[in-house]
Amino acid sequence: MNNGRDMTRPDWEKRIRRARELAAQYPAAAEVLGFYGEIAAFQREIFVAAAAENLHADPMRPLGEQLVRPAALGRFPALVELVEKKGPAGLAQAARELRQETPDEWRALLIKNSQPNGSDLTHRFFARACLQPMAEYLAFDSKVQFSGYSGPLCPVCGDKPQLSVLRPEGDGGKRSLVCSCCATEWDFRRILCPNCAEEDHGKLPRFSAEDFPHVRVEACETCKRYLKSVDLTTNGLAVPVVDEIAAAPLDLWAAEHGYQKIELNLMGL
């Protein structure tokens, strides 16, 4: 039996559709989800282009260094335009500023922010929006075998996880983590902090609210970090990356209670 989560081809339609559904279901998150839907539609184009151009990653080099390619860079102006038009005020303002910059400056921005911990959060948004689909495509294409891998960082690109997923396994829910960069999903065992490897169950509370029956905050009292998990054993219709965004109030609750997310999602939540 294979322990590695098989990579299924990313399904952008599903994400876009789910964002629309959830926007109706969770009005508070409607603005965020609406904007996410626009970005996802943009990302789909890059993914499709990467596939059409039959791009490949060099397995000997870190994936993160191989993302800034014409298929992504060439669509950066479109992203800037989209954000300027549809984005929230802060991002729209940043887009306006970016529009003034040169393609070389854009390239520099992307390269700088394609690595984890890029400092400027707004720039990081632009970089992730543009490079995530490229990373996702290259990861999918690479067919890296990670069966049996159960570490805390992405087995394909080495980035941090952004959310966790529970999938049915017998009577229980088997956990996997989703990479914040290339969206690879890999097995990660339950009752274990993906940030600091705490295993003491007493220090790993799970917080949930009736508003989001299938999303919960998986926190760690030791490092005060958390991820949200989307439980597909409770709701099989959920699309993890989207449902995670819709449950934004849990992030705000966690923040108020002193927990910091291991890695923010694309919407900065």
Partner: peptide, 20 residues
């Protein structure tokens, strides 16, 4: 700490905070 998108990106935070 958590809602960077709310403040920096400029989403309308009020409904989310209300739900929270």
């Amino acid at each position: 700490l958590g809602g960077v998108g709310l403040t920096v990106f400029g989403f309308d935070a009020a409904p989310l905070l209300a739900q929270t």
